[in-house]
Design a protein around this nucleic acid. Structure first.
Length: 183
DNA sequence: AGATTGATCCAT
DNA sequence: TGGATCAATCTG
C-alpha cells in the first residue's frame, strides 16, 4: 500500500509531534504503530499511552537533567526514545514539543488484529523494537513509524488515569497523564 | 510476593 | 568504582 496516497493513510509528520505533549498523547490513540523489517510489516492500533512532560515532572527521566540517556528527549519532535528497563525489557517513546524541552509519550499498549499487546515491554518485544531504534526518525516512513489511517476518535472514548510504576514521583505520580482508549 | 536483569546515575 | 535504582514482566 502507498503510504502517502490513497486518501487516508499517511505517516505522521513532525508537526504532529511538535505540539503540547498531553495533546500529542491523546491524539496518538487510534493511530497505528508500524514496524517494517526484512521479515515484513506489522501494525497495531495504539490504545494506551503515557505523557512525560518537562524538567519538573519528577516521573520523567529528564527530571534528573540532560544526560547521555535523556539527551534524546531534548531532541527535535518525532524522534524515538527507546530505553532498556530492568535489564530485560525495552520501552518505546515518541519525543514531542520542541528541541531543548524534554518531553515524550510512552506507548503502553496496541491492539493487533488478533490480540491486545498490553504493556510497553510487550509492545517492544512483539514489534522487535530495541535500542538500535533509539533516535530513530519516526517521520521517515522507514523501519518504524506511526500512521494516521483516517479513523476519528471521539473525546468521550478517551479515559485519563495516573501513570504506572512511578510512585517515587510523589505528587507527579497522581497526575492523570495516562490515556487509554475505551473499547 | 519474589525473582529476574543490566544500563544508568550518583555518592562514596 | 560500587551499589542502589529502575516509565516491567513472569512465575508461583
Amino acid at each position: 500500500m502507498r503510504k502517502d496516497l490513497g486518501g487516508n493513510v499517511r505517516v505522521l509528520p513532525a508537526s504532529f509531534y511538535a505540539r503540547p505533549t498531553l495533546q500529542v498523547a491523546r491524539s496518538l490513540l487510534g493511530k497505528y504503530l508500524v514496524r517494517e523489517t526484512s521479515a515484513g510489516r506489522r501494525a497495531g492500533r495504539i490504545v494506551e499511552v503515557e505523557a512525560y512532560v518537562g524538567f519538573r515532572d519528577r516521573a520523567s527521566h529528564a527530571s534528573r537533567g540532560r544526560t547521555k540517556r535523556t539527551e534524546v528527549m531534548f531532541g527535535p519532535p518525532g524522534l524515538a526514545y527507546v530505553y532498556l528497563i530492568y535489564g530485560m525489557y525495552h520501552c518505546l517513546n515518541v519525543v514531542t514539543e520542541r528541541a531543548d524541552f524534554p518531553a515524550a509519550v510512552l506507548i503502553r499498549a496496541v491492539q493487533d488484529t488478533s490480540a491486545l499487546i498490553d504493556g510497553p515491554g510487550r509492545v517492544c518485544r512483539s514489534f522487535q523494537i530495541d535500542r538500535e531504534l533509539n533516535y530513530h526518525d519516526l517521520t521517515s516512513g522507514k523501519a518504524l513509524w506511526i500512521e494516521d489511517r483516517g479513523n476519528r476518535i471521539r473525546r468521550a472514548r478517551i479515559g485519563a488515569f495516573p501513570r504506572i510504576g512511578v510512585d517515587y514521583a510523589k505528587a507527579w505520580a497522581a497526575k492523570p497523564w495516562r490515556f487509554r482508549l475505551k473499547m
